[in-house]
Design a protein around this nucleic acid. Structure first.
Lengths: 346, 346
DNA sequence: CGTGTTTGAGCAACCGTTTTCCTGAGCGAG
DNA sequence: CTCGCTCAGGAAAACGGTTGCTCAAACACG
């Protein structure tokens, strides 16, 4: 009881199937398939007949059928742990860009930092037989690796921005050390030597690491922070303003601020301006993140460190692709260099 | 290894198939399928045996096979036209939330405003047989509907935030009229009557519409703008500062600013503070967008209009779901009400 | 002219589920 | 004891491609 096999124009889906193409071209389904895949030898004229039929019918292969057969879905999961924030967004776009260039699509999963939701999405991704997974988050703190779903071991996972706590996993992170050095070197090169460092909460790896590297780098050139300590606080303008006051009180000869992010830097710049201190005339200010709405709106616009987030996403995607193609994953965290963006605050 | 090798012929995919489950439970594949779907009558004991087998093998159905058979992919495309900006992000999350609650996943497509890329993604989505598409953008200006790919007519499309120019399409937009009224009414209710309006470029629908509705609403209560005209400019703090100066020069008795977005409002607030004008003591300021990094960092924190972007995304997703389920799409643009967020600037 | 070698194209077996149809067993009624 | 019903469960046909294998025709060569 074959459904009207010869009847042209009776595809139940409303779209042409390979069988329709084959019928129109006067060949068998198998031959039509070969004509499209380029596999096997065949008379050019036959291939052309098939291609013509494809064009007339507007045929496009059914990906579900293909995936069922090949086991590949040409899809990767993009798991973001904190909504789609200011940090994960560029990463995500970079990844989407690198993947979309091929024929790979991106399944978006937002866990909102909830473990239950993460499991739910993970199971979903596995059910859809994704070819790989990219995990990204807002913070640079390491996060526990994905677990709990059987089958996970068999597909590659790359962590972007937030590395995995397991060193055997593949991670792509921002080069905090290089970023801190860029900032410090830039300030030194403009003749500043009394540098203060104001940053976010000490329990954030981003704050801790950048501070640590900044201090180390200063020491390597025989200098110390102007206030002899790091000012940990919050990632806010208000903290920047308060910290600026405190710094100038304890070390009035401070001639530069290196700030843990652009919000703090903007707060510092505002406080200085309101005190009548010239930026960059009297004191230079360097931010971090190159968050344009902050850096550009600041008075003066901020010199800042750009983490190249989109590049992190792109590289993560490329490494995932390599892993999918079967190359052995190079484990460990690969740092992506930062970029110094010079504006008017230095 | 919990990998039960009970079935003859190991699964090539490395994961259990329904055939393995059936073998372990001692039933046929068809019966196993029925046990899982709940369809058809069968002895409870048999069903239980199947469920047990499913549990021991950790079986999960292959979605490609299911989709191939049913024609449904349980996937929707999310097409965003401008990267994933400040506006599309919440919309996108709201949609992801509403859809992910079911078993529907989201394919992310970023066109970066490029028509070629849009066609490319569209074709990709159609190849994957998505069940529907949500289109979103940064601006509230109407955009041309999706076209150019055959088969598109057969699946539902919902436009979020940026409506389609075709009134027969389904769109979910922000209620600019209600937003403008909320802002104006709030200012009136705090006793202000000399209101100025500073906003973005006139060629942006968001600026035009809000201005238009604000003026209309004022007129309805017998008032006019303090400067008798709308101040169109840019969506920037710098413009807010400049405009504040200009307004106070032409209409020194202005006692409130309604601003087209939070950046402008912050600029206005800064300019007033630097002039020694009290906010809200002397002049009240209302923003638009409730962009927290702006509204909260402003001094004082801004009263502002929240467009409920996530709600827009959620509603768009729900309407798409309805349409997918076969309900007739209600065409036209459905406005989602805004919310007044009162802080210290009024 | 017979034989061996290409070569182009078709056949059919998958991929993993769903679903329809069918069979056979069990059982109550006459 | 037989007839008809009900119902659990199996067999097999889709869904739409891919691919290894087979087979016949065409060609080269001795």
């Amino acid at each position: 009881m074959t459904r009207a096999a010869g009847a042209p124009g009776s595809p139940p889906t409303g779209r042409a199937r390979l069988a329709d193409v084959a019928a129109l071209a006067g060949v068998s389904v198998g031959t039509a398939s070969k004509a499209l895949s380029g596999a096997g030898r065949m008379r050019p004229e036959t291939r052309q007949r098939v291609l013509d039929a494809v064009a007339t019918l507007g045929f496009r292969p059914n990906q579900h059928a293909q995936s069922l057969h090949t086991g590949r879905s040409w899809t990767v999961g993009l798991m973001t742990t904190d909504g789609i924030g200011r940090f994960s967004t560029p990463v995500l776009l970079g990844a989407e860009d690198a993947l979309g260039a091929g024929k790979i699509s991106v399944l978006l999963c937002d866990t909102r930092g909830d473990a239950i939701r993460e499991q739910h999405h993970l199971r979903n991704l596995m059910d859809r037989r994704v070819d790989g997974i990219i995990v990204t988050g807002r913070r640079t703190d390491a996060r526990p690796p994905l677990t709990g779903i059987s089958g996970l071991e068999s597909i590659p996972v790359v962590y972007a921005l937030s590395p995995s706590t397991d060193p055997a996993d593949t991670s792509v992170v921002s080069d905090d050390e290089g970023g801190a050095q860029l900032a410090v070197d830039h300030l030194l090169s403009t003749g500043r030597t009394r540098i203060a460092h104001v940053t976010g909460p000490e329990h954030h790896a981003a704050a801790r690491d950048r501070a640590h590297h900044a201090v180390d780098h200063l020491r390597a050139t025989g200098l110390d922070l102007s206030t002899e300590r790091v000012h940990f606080g919050e990632w806010s303008e208000a903290w920047g303003r308060r910290a600026a006051d405190a710094v100038l009180r304890t070390a009035p000869d401070t001639d530069a601020f290196f700030c843990g992010n652009d919000q703090i830097a903007r707060g510092v710049a505002d406080a200085l301006r309101e005190k009548g201190v010239g930026v960059p005339g009297d004191i230079a200010v360097v931010g971090y993140d190159n968050w344009d709405t902050m850096a550009l709106a600041s008075r003066p616009p901020l010199t800042t460190i750009d983490m190249n987030l989109a590049e992190i996403g792109r590289i993560a995607a490329l490494r995932l692709l390599e892993a999918i193609e079967g190359a052995d994953a190079t484990p460990g965290a690969r740092p992506v260099p930062c970029r110094l963006v010079v504006r008017e605050s230095t």
